[in-house]
Computed example of a mutant assay.
Amino acid sequence: MRKLSGLILFLPLIELVLLIAMGAAVGFLATLLWILATGIWGAWLMRTAGPNAMARAQRDMARTGRGEVDGLGVAANFLGGLMLLLPGPVTDLFGLVLVTPFLRRLAFGAWLAGRLQQVVVERGGMGGGPFDTGRPGSGNVYEGEAEDVTPRDPRDRDRIEHDDRRR
Rank of each mutant, 00 (worst) to 15 (best):
V120K: 15
L116E: 02
F108G: 04
G39E: 00
E68F: 05
P154F: 02
L36S: 05
D164S: 04
L84V: 07
I40T: 10
L7F: 15
T150C: 12
V69I: 15
L116D: 00
A25E: 02
A57Q: 03
A30P: 08
P12H: 01
R105Q: 10
L96N: 12
K3A: 13
N140S: 11
V149R: 01
E161H: 05
G81I: 05
A43F: 08
F10Y: 14
R47W: 13
Q58N: 06
D132E: 08
A49S: 13
G95K: 14
A21S: 11
I20M: 07
Y142E: 00
L32K: 01
S138D: 07
I14H: 03
L93G: 09
G134W: 01
A43D: 00
A55Y: 03
G139H: 10
V90R: 05
F94S: 04
M22V: 02
A76P: 06
R2S: 09
P136K: 12
A30S: 04
V90F: 11
T100E: 11
L7N: 03
M61L: 15
L33W: 05
L116G: 10
L116S: 07
R66V: 11
F10P: 07
E161I: 02
L13D: 00
Y142M: 07
L112M: 12
L85H: 00
A62G: 15
D132T: 06
A49N: 06
T31K: 11
V120D: 02
A37V: 14
M46E: 02
V90H: 05
G65M: 06
P130N: 02
G39S: 03
G114I: 03
Y142T: 01
D132W: 15
V121D: 09
F102M: 13
G42Y: 04
D158H: 13
T64F: 15
Q117P: 04
R2A: 08
E68G: 05
A21I: 06
F108L: 11
I20N: 01
M83D: 01
T100A: 15
A24H: 01
Q118G: 13
A113G: 14
T48Y: 12
V26Q: 13
F10M: 14
M126T: 06
R56F: 08
Q117S: 10
D60K: 11
Q58C: 03
D164N: 05
V26C: 10
V121G: 03
A75G: 04
R123I: 09
N140T: 07
L18Q: 00
G42I: 06
T64V: 05
L96Y: 06
V149T: 02
L4R: 09
T91M: 15
G134N: 10
P130R: 15
F94G: 13
A55I: 08
L85S: 12
L116M: 13
I35P: 04
A55E: 08
A43H: 04
L11F: 04
T133H: 15
W111Q: 05
V120L: 15
